[in-house]
Design a protein around this nucleic acid. Sequence first.
DNA 1: CTGAATTTTCAGTAATTTCTGAAAATTGTA
DNA 2: TACAATTTTCAGAAATTACTGAAAATTCAG
Lengths: 183, 183
Amino acid sequence: MSPIINSLVMHFGEMGSRWGLNRTLGQMYALIVLTEKPLNADEISAQLNISRSNVSMGLKELKSWNLIKLSHIPGDRKEYFSAPKDVWEIARNLMMERRKREVDPTLTALRDVLLEAPANEQEEYAQQRVKQMHDLIEMLTIWTDELQNMSNEKVAALLKLGSGLSKLLDMKERLLPGKANKE
Amino acid sequence: MSPIINSLVMHFGEMGSRWGLNRTLGQMYALIVLTEKPLNADEISAQLNISRSNVSMGLKELKSWNLIKLSHIPGDRKEYFSAPKDVWEIARNLMMERRKREVDPTLTALRDVLLEAPANEQEEYAQQRVKQMHDLIEMLTIWTDELQNMSNEKVAALLKLGSGLSKLLDMKERLLPGKANKE
DNA sequence: CTGAATTTTCAGTAATTTCTGAAAATTGTA
DNA sequence: TACAATTTTCAGAAATTACTGAAAATTCAG
């Protein structure tokens, strides 16, 4: 493996655990993303020195995250894997899956709590905090939905706004003062 | 512990591991956030059935995330802990710390790779992908900086935009077509 | 200062997560 | 359909991470 690719594979291995993945998954995905031609499971297993079965489990996981594409080579029965060529697509899918795993269950739990009648002072306070959290998380959720549906170009434009964002908000406020937004 | 609080403590315990924390940390923070009066380490230890030393380590971690506030009660030598009353502040700090741990090191690693001269075809392809990732992550970083510096009200307004966001972008494009934004 | 109260550290243990090899299941071709 | 190629599953082993109790360090009132 080329030194550059190797160092990135190592790095993403380290980071893998900090993101919801794990070391092997991070390494596998780095290798797949950085390699131009699709790889089969044996190649991945050999390059990363991990067992064939571990690769199989890793690929299953990456599939469930929608992070890899499957392809075939004529006359070869093996399956070949590659990453979307578009980093935006990768980022989108990552965001979506993380939200599904990390945020959605909490939103549900908070909603459930809000349906209960508070039994005393303490619970009243707790519910008030739960309400705040719920509202914040719900807004974030709506936002990420919005990002999902935007074109790459539009998301890119939005991100490029950077510090212009604040100004844009002010402008909007001047043009459409206090106009309520529906979701 | 009240049933409502208990169920949330359990839930955040579960989720703790999916976020960069761990079970105990999630439980501790849920308890602190949902309890109105500041808690001391012994109370936390008792309520959650975890060792005093574990609480100490957890509090150290929560401090490093800027998630808790320290206070004292006159005539009591113990330290008391509470969460910011403002969920935005919590969300902000969480975002900042996660970025520091999960994104910044990667940005650095990607930059380092971009400084190397590609040795062959493979490396050339890899660098091209690294460039894409780098640019995307850098934009995200600038954005989160921007969010850090915005007032709560402004962030709230931004989040509330929800699906109005897309329209706002269009509007901007009409008014200031193609205007470049500096960071 | 002294010493009791409190907090922190840390080596060892417990719990959890990840990884492997062997076996089972699936796939596609002849 | 039969069978070789390939992939998946899964029980146990290995590695990692989290937790504890005991001891050390710190803090602060007297």
